[in-house]
Design a binder for these strands. Sequence first.
DNA 1: TGCAAGTCAATACC
DNA 2: GGTATTGACTTGCA
Length: 358
Amino acid sequence: PESPLSSAEESVNGLAGDPLASQSSSLKPPSEDPSGQRLFGETILGLTQGSVSDLLARPKPWHKLSLKGREPFVRMQLWLQDPHSVEKLMDMKRLEKKAYMKRRLSSLSDGHSVEGVLSGPDYMQGSQSPGGQQQLKKARVVLGPEEKEALKKAYQQKPYPSPKTIEELASQLNLKTNFDTGLNLCFYSRSRIRRELFIEEIQAAGGVGPGSEGGSPSLRGCKSGEGDSCDGTESEGTVETRQGLGIGLEDHRGACKDQGMEVESEAGASNNSPAQLDCTTSGLAGPGSSCGQSGLGIFSLTEASSTSSASNTNIPSSGPARNPRDNNLRKKKAANLNNIIHRLEKAASKEDPSEWEF
DNA sequence: TGCAAGTCAATACC
DNA sequence: GGTATTGACTTGCA
C-alpha cells in the first residue's frame, strides 16, 4: 500500500471516484471543478486536459521526444516517487474547491456572474499575456472530411508544397482561409497527417512485426538489423541528468513497436485482451516488462472496466457507458499509462544513470 | 528561415 | 460534464 504504484492507483480511483463530491452535497459542484484528468494534468504535469488526453492516447517513442516532450513523464515519475503525492493532490483539489466557493460567494454577493471569476489563472493557462492583455487567437477553421482527405492526398503527392501550391490547394478546396491558414494546414498538421499515413501503411503492409519494414521514411527510420527491428541493441548514449529534467532514458527498442501499437490494437488481430495487446506490442513495455504478464498495472483493463466498478483497479468509468471504440481507446490509454509508469519506476530503480532505460 | 515538436484551447463527441 | 479531437500558436533546432 505504501508503494508509489499503490499511491497512484489510489489517486486515480480517488480522483475519478471523487470522494469529495459527496462532501459537498449541498452545493452543486462547479462546472469548472477540475476533473481527474484535468487536475492531474494541470497540477502535476503542467499540461491542459487536451494535452494529457493526447499524450496518453498517442504516446511517442521516447527517443523521438525532445527534452520538453519528456518533461511530463519526468514530472509523472517524480510524482510517483512521492509517497504523499495522492494526499497532496487531494489537498490541492480541496483547496481549489474552497477557493472556487469563496470566489463564487464573493462574486454573488457583489452581484457579478461567476463566469468572470473563473477565467483567472487558476483555470486558464497561457490565455493571457504577462501584461494581463488577452491574446487574440484566430478563429478555428473546422475542416470537413473531404477537405481533410484532399489535404492528405496532397501531402502524399507533395509533402513540402510551395507557397503557390498551397494557395492553389486552398482555392481548390474552397477553403475560406487566408494564406496563413493554408500554411497551417500544410505545415502544422504535417506530423499528424504523416502519423495517419504511417498507420495506414502499416495496416496495408499487414502490421508491424519483427523484421517488417514499410516504405515510409518513418518506417525506414527504424533500425531493422539483427533480425528484430528496433531491438535497442544500439545506443546513442545520450544520458541526461535528472536535474536537467531528462531522465536519460534513451532506448530505441520501442520505435517500431510503438508505432505499431495503435494499429494492432485497433485491428484486434490477436487473442490477447486489448490491454495485453497494447502492453506487449507497445515499445513502452520493453523487454522484461511485467505488463501483460502479471496484470498488475495500475490500470487493470478487464472487460469489466467498461461495464461496472467491479474492480477498484479499473479505470473508473465516468458517466454513461461508452461505445466500443471509446472503450478501446480508454483501455489503450490506460495500457499506455501503465507502461509509462512501469518504465519510469524501472528507470528510477537504477542508480547508475547509464543503466536507465525507458 | 523552415521545419518539427509541443502545447493551448475551442469545440465536437459521447 | 468529461473526454477526444484538432486548428492555432509557440518554441527550439539545424
